Simulated assay, not measured.
Amino acid sequence: MADLKYYDVILKPIVTEKSMSTMGEKKYTFSVHPEATKNQIKEAVEKMFTGAKVEKVNTINMDGKTRRRGNIEGKTSKVKKAIVQLTEDSAEIEIFSGL
């Protein structure tokens, strides 16, 4: 298990049509470090965004896709996504408010 600090856990927010539609239910989607646990993700969201209280965290491990370039075959890197559900009395996350 990697010794991750809270600012290393969340890599970037994922902004897609599906993730934007779930924001009304206070669900936010992030790309996270592949070795991060649910407890580390919860702690990172609560520390990085003031007023955010996490109810639950769902994680998705996605394997890399096989890509070809001519005769050479390779794989893209693995990705881990986290869908964070905030509590009802929690504050909104500011980075998504202007979208």
Rank of each mutant, 00 (worst) to 15 (best):
S31Y: 08
S31D: 05
S31H: 05
S31N: 08
V32Q: 01
V32D: 01
H33A: 01
E35F: 11
A36D: 07
T37Q: 00
T37C: 01
T37K: 02
T37F: 02
K38S: 06
N39V: 13
Q40H: 07
Q40Y: 04
E43W: 04
E43I: 06
E43Q: 13
V45T: 02
V45G: 01
E46I: 07
E46H: 06
E46Y: 08
K47Q: 15
K47R: 15
M48N: 06
F49S: 04
T50C: 03
T50I: 09
T50S: 14
G51R: 10
G51W: 11
G51M: 10
G51K: 11
G51S: 11
K53A: 04
K53F: 03
V54I: 07
V54E: 03
V54Q: 05
V54P: 00
E55A: 12
K56P: 00
K56M: 06
K56W: 03
V57H: 02
V57K: 01
T59P: 04
T59M: 11
T59C: 05
I60K: 04
I60V: 12
I60A: 04
I60Q: 05
I60F: 08
N61K: 13
N61L: 08
N61M: 09
M62P: 00
D63P: 10
D63N: 13
G64L: 05
K65T: 10
R67N: 10
R67T: 14
R69H: 14
G70H: 09
N71P: 01
I72K: 15
I72E: 14
I72Q: 14
K75T: 13
S77A: 14
S77G: 14
K78S: 11
K78A: 13
V79M: 12
V79R: 14
V79Q: 12
K80R: 13
K81C: 00
K81N: 04
K81P: 00
K81H: 06
A82Q: 02
